[in-house]
């Protein structure tokens, strides 16, 4: 089985995230970059499937600036076999639809894949639908927010878990799956894995190499534009008292004062 996993480099959620003043895109300079945690789960899921099948191949597909190669390395050191990386200045500021279209082209450079596995929701956006959008463009089924996943023969089944409850889904391969936060615990790369990753092939592409026209991506051609942005003043800390046996009563007093009870 050949599995493509989509990997995104994001600003570490532990660091303070900022938008740039000039074009309202994420200010990457000011933040620590890491592989998005949910993508580690996508990679883990791919590796688990490959191990269960006894053979197969896991290809990492990533779109993002050069420094996203760190995220790719992490996935390769966990055990993925190879990677395709689209890095081009021109993709900066692409909107969700453009991103889905470009990822679809990029996935198209991988031959004969059976399954695409992605994270359900990136930590730095609010779209949470790119895997389904990619599936739609590829013309294959989307089985999203999977907290359990199995493949038997050419059928993939998932347990989709969201606020609306559990939905059991099944489809024939090839298909796109996105995994949820409770799908698995990603492994730590071993020392051997880290060493091996250095020798694994990474196909570095620019737009032309991926067969994407410049007019299809980038801030200037985006289907939506951010027109302004502003940081909100941080919340000020209020009163803090140490409990001396009357802590609960003190809170009640405060809530009464605020007309909350």
């Amino acid at each position: 089985m050949k599995i493509v996993t989509l990997v995104k480099q994001v600003a570490d959620t532990y660091s303070e995230r900022k938008l740039s003043d000039s074009d309202h895109t994420l200010d990457r300079e000011g933040t620590e970059a890491v592989i998005d945690e949910i993508n580690e789960r996508a990679v883990e899921q791919a590796l688990l499937l490959k191990e269960a099948a006894g053979d197969g191949e896991v290809v990492v597909v990533c779109m993002g600036p050069d420094r996203a190669s760190d995220a790719i390395r992490k996935a390769l050191s966990m055990g993925a076999d190879s990677a395709v990386h689209l890095s081009d200045e021109a993709i900066h500021g692409s909107c969700a639809v453009q991103t889905a279209r470009a990822l679809t082209k990029l996935i198209g450079t991988v031959e004969g894949w059976d399954l695409v596995i992605a994270g359900n929701s990136a930590s730095d956006g609010q779209v949470a639908a790119v895997p389904a959008m990619v599936a739609d463009l590829l013309g294959v089924p989307a089985l999203t927010w999977a907290n359990e996943l199995s493949v038997s023969g050419s059928t993939v089944t998932v347990k989709r878990e969201t606020d609306d409850g559990v939905t059991h889904l099944s489809a024939e391969l090839p298909a796109v799956v996105s995994v949820g936060e409770k799908s698995n615990e990603p492994r730590y790369p071993s020392f051997k894995g880290i060493m091996a990753a250095k020798k694994k092939p990474v196909n570095n592409l620019d737009l032309a190499g991926a067969g994407i026209d410049g007019s299809e991506v980038g801030l200037a051609n985006a289907l939506v534009s951010v027109t302004s942005s502003a940081p909100k003043p941080p919340k000020q800390a209020g009163e803090k008292v140490t409990d001396e046996g009357d802590g609960g009563a003190k809170i009640a007093e405060y809530l009464v004062g605020q007309k909350l009870i």
Binding site: A100, M133, A142, D163
Partner: peptide, 19 residues
Amino acid sequence: SANGKEVAGRLAVRTGSGL
């Protein structure tokens, strides 16, 4: 919602609409 975002995304790519 999870479902709503997915319907929206798929609709946007099909119709070339800004999302």
